[in-house]
Design a binder for these strands. Structure first.
Lengths: 226, 226
DNA sequence: AAATGCATGTAATTGGTTACATGATTTC
DNA sequence: GAAATCATGTAACCAATTACATGCATTT
């Protein structure tokens, strides 16, 4: 349902072709969404049928003709209605975390390998983000105008950066933890048991608490009765 | 594609019915996935046809009969293959961030309202998570066994907590920033302009940097040539 | 010569959501 | 008396991905 509004949102700023919309989804908007050309084109046709946007053909030389879309007044109205509507409650789908959740089936070495691999993926994402944002920052400084548009892009970008940085940090800390608990895998292989006491110090450090009380207050927000 | 493995993963730990699987997705696994009963039941039938799981009917009194599923050796094999496979690159879909990205179309007051609303959603999620985790922690302490299974759940849970806490913090900081920049909306209404210089101090604080150099080094990781 | 970019789309398939359908028991 | 819990499913629909299809210009 959100793709529609992402497209209307873009077209509320500039006229664009499907191809250009896709590029925007691949750069800045990759912070919060991703889609395919084969989804964009039918969606554009649909929005045009609903009269939320309209199009005109632009002939080009040396390049294929393009179909430039503009938002209509009805389109703007529908966009604003969505912006004012109650935000959807988050429904996260993080397939890597799902994988990690079941990685006790792997050897410690393999777990670390997967974590390092994924850390790199996130680092690449962060690098790409920073590149996009550095370019935007140069443009903003040149124009020397600070608008609400720039403000709202900036806060979203901040979230994007944070998200990547935090995930990378988690990967690093988790790799360290698994390394320091590698013996757990051997203990289990020999049908032995490790007690909770054996690992409390490592756990406290990982959860960034001082002691049992810290862990308790981290898990227990003190308002169970709701 | 991941739902399949989430279900196989669960069934690799305990036998379960569709209804029980759903409950697990609604509690701990809500950190990284969500689904519906109407997706789980057909998926179970499909997995049984593929011989990755099998089922037996359990009659109950006072409650409807239930269909208990177990994983097969082939199912385990396919699960392990997935665990060893290269993690998918993240494809985030965050409809609230998309909304926020276009909120320059709203008044500052409305932006703040939406941010506060969403902050509360995230706070509720965090509270729920903490509750689940506190209960798990009690169980772990009682059992006094620390296994690789508990380790991998713990690291995933850490990520879940972090994610919520960071998002809430971002909401708070962004509300503050928008409040302190409310004048931008009035400036634009009067067709005026605010210069970048007018807001640099606020931006530095928001991006947690000291000065232009800090901002630059935050955006520019120094490795553009890749 | 091969790959990438520009530019548009369709078709087939899979994945996910909402609505519908049933029915007993327990809790508020 | 109403709502929630337990328990299973189907049907319809919408969203998203992968594969297919074309073709010229530019870059490697």
């Amino acid at each position: 349902m959100s793709l529609k509004y992402g497209m209307l949102g873009l077209l509320s700023k500039w006229d664009a072709t499907g191809y250009e919309i896709k590029k925007e989804f691949d750069s800045f908007m990759s912070i919060f969404w991703h889609t395919h050309l084969s989804q964009i084109y039918p969606e554009l046709s649909k929005l045009e049928k609903e009269k939320l946007i309209n199009s005109r053909m632009i002939p080009q030389d040396g390049k294929p003709d393009k179909k430039l879309y503009s938002i209509t007044d009805e389109g703007r109205k529908e966009l604003f209605q969505w912006l004012e509507a109650a935000p959807e409650s988050p429904n996260i789908k993080d397939s890597f975390l799902m994988q990690a959740f079941f990685m006790d089936n792997l050897s410690a070495k393999d777990v670390i390998f997967q974590l390092k691999y994924y850390q790199k993926e996130r680092e690449d994402r962060l690098k790409k983000l920073k590149q996009i944002l550095y370019e935007k920052w140069q443009l903003i400084k040149e124009g020397n105008k600070f608008t609400t548009r720039i403000l709202m892009s900036s806060v979203v970008l901040k979230r994007g950066l944070e998200q990547e940085e935090e995930y990378i940090l988690w990967c690093k800390r988790t790799i360290e933890l698994v390394e320091s608990m590698e013996h757990l895998w051997n203990v289990e292989k020999d049908n032995g048991v490790a007690t909770v006491g054996d690992v409390t110090d490592l756990l406290y450090r990982y959860f960034e608490v001082e002691d049992e009380e810290g862990l308790k207050s981290r898990f227990n927000s003190g308002d169970f009765l709701e």
